[in-house]
Nucleic acid binder design. Structure first.
Length: 270
DNA sequence: AACTCATGCAACCGCTTTAAA
DNA sequence: CTTTAAAGCGGTTGCATGAGT
């Protein structure tokens, strides 16, 4: 398992390519093909290592490269393939004609990964995050909120905040915040995801598979997606009147037992 | 206008895999 | 079968640019 020598050792040029170098490489490959990348630089009159030339060609100079913004469809394809293949950028790139593995990798790292994280999904598993670290800021904020509520509200609220016993199974799921209004089948959560335009693809795989990959509630995680509580506040402000008058049973805030819609403190607080 | 910070992307590094001797 | 060279691949870095202060 030998390693190709580093460019430094041979005094070869590194760093950004000049237009002149690009032209030399392009001209040589168009005329002769790339053949052996090892010998190409010398033959093409370039003071670069073969590796650098190959990279420049495959990621930039190749004539079939499609440049510019990724389309919605390409985005969905990447998300889908990444959920199946993981960080196999070259494998993903084979399904996106004109896109290089490097380009896809960059797009993933700078856009898609961040968006998944923001939505509370683990970018590697595509499932809601379960790690305590990721949840910590929100847990702290909620703990502070709870403390304030305990101090200001009736004793029954304090009682209600007592942690459930270990055999409380289902009830524990409502212990952590989620601004996606939850129904028994989680449909609203799915709808909300679709509205974001992020997780909405439906092609390629069986519905069951995708439902599993992008499950929000009850998808094998005890922790719902992490969200900004201000979203919940806004949603409550806008929906509280109709919710109370129509007898809407599902609180827009998490932990309805702690944050009852008709509690004057809660409505004032929000 | 000057500075700082965040973002996007091209390119490099080093490990793994493949193929040839 | 073993060794070695070359290619492939994914992770990471560093620079250019734009936005915000």
């Amino acid at each position: 398992m030998g390693r190709s020598p580093c460019c430094d050792e041979n005094g070869l040029k590194k760093g950004p390519w000049t237009q002149e170098e690009d032209e030399k490489l392009l001209h040589y490959i168009q005329k002769n093909g790339h053949g052996s990348w090892r010998t190409l630089p010398r033959l093409a009159g370039l003071n670069r290592c073969g590796k650098s030339c190959r990279l420049r060609w495959t990621n930039y100079l190749r004539p079939d490269i499609k440049r510019g913004k990724f389309s919605q469809e390409e985005e969905q394809t990447i998300l889908h393939l990444h959920s199946v293949l993981g960080n196999k950028w070259s494998a993903i790139a084979t399904h996106l004609p004109g896109r290089t593995d490097n380009e896809i990798k960059n797009f993933w790292n700078t856009h898609l990964k961040k968006r998944l994280i923001q939505m509370g999904f683990d970018p590697m598993t595509h499932r809601p995050r379960t790690d305590l670290f990721a949840a910590l800021p929100q847990l702290i904020a909620l703990a502070a909120l709870r403390e304030q509520l305990s101090a200001l509200c009736s004793p029954q609220l304090t009682a209600a905040t007592t942690a459930p016993s270990a055999d409380d199974g289902d009830r524990q799921s409502s212990y952590l915040p989620c601004t996606f209004p939850v129904s028994s089948d989680g449909q609203e959560a799915a709808n909300q995801q679709q509205q974001t335009g992020l997780i909405s693809y439906d092609g390629g795989r069986a519905a069951g598979d995708d439902a599993d990959v992008f499950a929000c509630h009850g998808g094998g995680s005890s922790l719902p997606p992490l969200t900004d509580l201000s979203d919940a506040a806004a949603s409550m402000r806008s929906g509280s009147a109709t919710a109370s008058s129509s007898g809407f049973s599902c609180s827009p805030l998490p932990w309805p037992e702690f944050f009852p819609n008709d509690d004057p403190f809660i409505t004032d607080f929000l």
